[in-house]
Design a protein around this nucleic acid. Structure first.
Lengths: 149, 149
DNA sequence: GCCCTGGTGGGGAAAAGTGGGGAGAAATAA
DNA sequence: TTATTTCTCCCCACTTTTCCCCACCAGGGC
C-alpha cells in the first residue's frame, strides 16, 4: 500500500474543477480505478480517498467511528456518508467538487491538496495557514520533544 | 544497515536541485532504490531518509505518533505526511527540493548535507552555523562531562 | 598529459495546470 | 406537456513548469 504524501497547490476554477496530483492519479491507476471518493473532513477540510481505502473504511474500520453517544454517532455518520461522492477524474486530471463540499471546506481560488497517509486532504489555502499556525505548529513542538526523529 | 555519516557542502541551484553525496547514493543503490524520502525536520532542517528507514518509520514508529488526543494526532500527522515527498535521484545525482521544504529550512545558495545516523539532514549553511553555535556546542560541552568518549 | 569522477548549469521536449466552448442531461418553471 | 435555465461532461487550446539530457569545468589518479 502506498501512502499519500506531499503538498500541492492548485486553483479551483470557476467551474469547481480541482486538479489531482499526478502521483495520486498514478496510485489510482495502479488500483485500476478511475474515481476517488470525496467527502467532508474534520477541522474544515475535505477527505479524498482511493477506492481501496474507501472500501476499507466501509468494511473493517467503520468501528473507528463508533462512539459512546450513539445519537452523536448517527449524526456524524449522516454527514460523513451523505456528503460523500464518487468523483471521476477527467481527461485533464481534475475532479469536480460539489457545491456543498466547497462550502464545507470554505474553498476559495487557492487550494491545497496534501497527503495524509491513508487519505489525502483538500484545504483552502488560507484556512490551512490558520490551522497550521493554531494547531499544527504547537502539536509538532510538543511531540517533537518526546520523539526520536 | 549502513549509517549515514559525513558532512558535504553543496549549492542549491536556481532550479532547486540539490546534490546527494555519492556515499549516500551508494547506500540507496544497495537497497535497490532510486529515490529518497525528504521531509521537514526539527530545528528548521530537512530530513532525508533511505527507503528502508522511511518504511521503518512508517511501520514500527508510527504507532509512536498515536495519542490520546485524536485532534492533536491529526494535526501532527497532517504535517508529517503532507510535507514528506519521495525524491528521485536524477542522472547527475541530484534531487529536487519542493518549494515549501526550501522555505521550511530557509535554504539559500549554500547548503549542508550531513549524516545523522539513520537519516541525513539538509541545512542552510548559515542556519547551521547559528544553530551549531547556540545549541550544539553547549550541549556537546555539557554532555562531554558525563560521557566516556 | 589523459581519463575518470563529481559538481554545476542550461536548452528543449514533454507533461502538467488552467481556461473556455458547446452538446446533452437534469432540474425548474410556465 | 413544453420551454427555459442550470449544470455536467467532453472536447480543444493555451501557458507554464517540469524533467530529461547534454555539456562544461575542476580536481585527482594513472
Amino acid at each position: 500500500m502506498s501512502l499519500l504524501i506531499g503538498r500541492y497547490e492548485y486553483s479551483l476554477d470557476p467551474k469547481n474543477r480541482l486538479a489531482v496530483p499526478p502521483k495520486y492519479r498514478e496510485a489510482l491507476a495502479k488500483e485500476k480505478g478511475s474515481s476517488f471518493f470525496l467527502t467532508s473532513g474534520m477541522e474544515g477540510c475535505l477527505y479524498l480517498f482511493l477506492p481501496s481505502q474507501w472500501e476499507k473504511l466501509l468494511g473493517d474500520d467503520l468501528k473507528a467511528f463508533s462512539m459512546a453517544d450513539k445519537e452523536q454517532e448517527r449524526a456524524f455518520k449522516r454527514k460523513f456518508f451523505s456528503e460523500a461522492v464518487e468523483v471521476e477524474v477527467d481527461a485533464q486530471g481534475r475532479v469536480l467538487v460539489p457545491q456543498y463540499l466547497k462550502e464545507h471546506a470554505g474553498l476559495g481560488a487557492s487550494v491545497l491538496v496534501q497527503g495524509a497517509g491513508k487519505r489525502a486532504e483538500v484545504w483552502d489555502a488560507k484556512r490551512w495557514a490558520a490551522y497550521e499556525k493554531a494547531k499544527v505548529a504547537p502539536a509538532y513542538k510538543t511531540i517533537g520533544k518526546n520523539l526520536e526523529i
